[in-house]
Design a protein around this nucleic acid. Structure first.
Length: 194
DNA sequence: TATACGATCACCT
DNA sequence: GGTGATCGTATAC
């Protein structure tokens, strides 16, 4: 079942945790890649000094001020892309960064369709880090502002049945790479499984 | 127009 | 553990 608009319109910290265990799905033509979301981070509001929106609305960050359920894709260090999903209401800049995905499945036995990083094959693949993740899923700036509720190209599905993720299985920690964010760097807004 | 820097990763020691 | 790659943004001039 595809996650709809309402799923993303909730409190960002909730959405970040609810996304754990869901499937991130990328389709290009008939080729499909699917993985379980293992790690997320929340970026909330202009008061969050770690967020790109802390400096206000710009052409780059305006996506975060837009409708929930859209992708915010940006480039870091001139090399890697990061995938975020916009949350909460319009005009409030918030998003969830997808940092880690595991148990990758590819629905084609022939040739690696997607870029194959030097990882172990099969379903043991773990993409730890937004850069690797985006390389593998072929996520780039063309998908910036993409609507994830459309079930095309890129979307997220809930596992069938009740979510098996128990609260106790969700671990929290400080976010990564935000030492410059003052008091905000202490926030435990990174969530992960395992 | 120019400059500084970062929500990272791979490779080195 | 430390560093270099590398480029889109924001900011300053």
């Amino acid at each position: 079942m595809v996650l709809g608009r309402r799923f993303y319109q909730k409190d960002t910290l909730k959405v970040a945790q609810n996304l754990l265990g869901c499937f991130l799905i990328r389709q290009i033509g008939k080729k499909k890649v699917k993985g379980i979301i293992m790690e997320t981070e929340a970026y909330i509001g202009e008061d969050d000094l770690a967020s790109h929106a802390s400096k206000g609305k710009t052409p780059r960050t305006e996506i975060m001020y837009g409708e929930a359920g859209h992708a915010y894709v940006y480039m870091v260090y001139g090399v890697y892309h990061c995938l975020n999903i916009v949350t909460e209401n319009k005009n409030f800049p918030a998003a969830v960064l997808i940092r880690g995905v595991a148990n990758i499945e590819i629905n084609s036995k022939s040739n690696p369709l997607f870029y194959s990083p030097p990882l172990k094959g099969g379903e043991d693949i773990v993409l730890d880090g937004p850069g690797k993740l985006c390389k593998f899923f072929k996520i780039n700036r063309k998908l910036n502002d993409w609507d994830l509720t459309k079930r095309e190209k890129l979307w997220i599905e809930k596992p069938s049945g009740k979510s098996a993720i128990a609260k106790k299985d969700i671990k929290k920690s400080k976010r990564v790479g935000v030492d410059y964010a003052g008091k905000c760097k202490h926030y435990l807004w990174r969530f992960y499984l395992g």
